[in-house]
Structure formats: structure tokens, C-alpha cells
Amino acid sequence: MLSAVWQTLTRWYHQWGSPRYFFQYSGVLLRWLWPLAIVATMTGLVWGLAFAPADYQQGDSYRIIFIHVPAASAALLGYVSMGVAGLVGLVWRMKMADIMIKAIAPFGAILAAVALITGAIWGKPTWGTYWVWDARLTSMLLMLFLYLGVIALINAIPDPRQAGRAASLLSVVGVINVVIVKYSVQWWQSLHQGSTLKVVGETAMPAEMLSPLLISMLGIYLLFACTVLVRARTEIMRRERKSQWLKEALQ
């Protein structure tokens, strides 16, 4: 059983590690993923904005949560994925790993920015200030800079292999900051509230608020997946533009 799972995983690793296979099947996948992503995001946000009840303490300002938490958690998850791709790229020199880092970084940076901006706007009516230099906010700002650093490295180094190695290294090292962001509210005194969602244990949020939040998260994750696939396909088309298989695929 376990060896069958392992075999399947290694087969997928090799298949999706091939630009040609990736290009072909990501195209099929996207046809389903785009509508799913848009429907989930719209459902979650409209539900959260118009149908979920108001918070008994924060009133309606808490509705910012339905974009703030999905954006922040997707930015974190995106950075971890970039770290995994970086590790694969550094250890096994896989071309697709470099392409994935380049594909993940732009939306990761945008989602980190969305989390910071919506958090600041939410902070004003809730804490009375847009910004404080506490552990959660500062480490999240650092995450935005790490994303921008990865993008800058890739753009600054003309040789794609060297650019890939540098970006991989920064991706792997930056994962430490993901851990800091995640646990900052427990390790240090913070103005920021604790995690709303818990993987282990009971979530304090009532179902009328939790359901739209989970659907919005799913939607933003799927949107992230869609743009990563689109950007990876773009990069494959740029790098393989002289390959015969690509010409055949586009004819």
C-alpha cells in the first residue's frame, strides 16, 4: 500500500517535472480550475459581506476577515511552496522547480500586500491605529520583502540557471520567516488577535461566519493555483520556444 503511494508520487514528480507534460496537462487542468476558483471566491466573499451576521464586538468591520485571512494564509502557503520548489531545485537541479518559483512569487507578493493593506485598514477601527511594529505585522512585512527579493533576483541575473539557484536559496532560507509569522502571535505579546482557524482543536468561530471564510480561502487558493499554472506555462513557452513539441502543441 505504502510502496504503491510512493510509486505514484515519484511518477507524478517525474511527469510534472517535465515541461512538456506540465504544459499539456496544466492546460487541461486550467479549464476546470478557473471557473471553480471564480465561483468559490465570489460565493465566499458575497456570503461573508452580505449574509454572515455581524460580530458582537467589532460590528461589520470584521467582514474584512473574509479577504484578509485568505490572502495572508495563501501568501504563507505560497512561500512554503516556493521553499519546497527551491529545495528541489537546489538538490536535484530540476528545471521546472526554477520555473515554479518564478511563477509563484508575483501573486505571493500581491497577496502579502493585500494581507498587510486590509489588515492596516481593519486595524484603524479596531485598534485605533493603522500600524504597530509588533511581531506579527513586522514579520509579515518581511515576507513581502522576501517575495520582492526573489522577484528582483530573478530579474537581475541574466543567466536563468544562476538566477534559479539564487532564487531557490532565498526561497528556502525565507521559510524560517513563515514559521515566525505563524507563531508570532503566540510567542510574543501582540496587538494582533490569535489564529481564527485551528487545524487541531475546536475553532471558536460560529458556523455562519466560518463557512464563508473557508469558501473564500478555497477560492483564493484556487486563484493562486490558476495564476501559478498560467505563469509557469508562460515561462515554459519562453524557454522552449524553439522546441518542436511546443510548436506542435500550439498548432
Binding site: G59, S61, I67, I110, I121
Partner: peptide, 29 residues
């Protein structure tokens, strides 16, 4: 409930940034 300016500006900026991201990705492709 008097928080409209906060809620809608947060969602407006988010929509703009996410829309921009999708638009740029599709255009590059």
C-alpha cells in the same frame, strides 16, 4: 454600520490588486 469606508476600501484595493495580477499573468501568456 458606520464601517463602510473601511470595509469597502479594503475590498476595493484587494479586488484591484488581485485583478491586476490575473490580468498581467494572462497578458504575459
Amino acid at each position: 454600520g458606520k464601517h463602510g469606508i473601511y470595509v469597502w476600501s479594503a475590498y476595493g484595493i484587494s479586488a484591484l490588486l488581485i485583478g491586476l495580477n490575473i490580468g498581467l499573468a494572462l497578458r504575459a501568456r
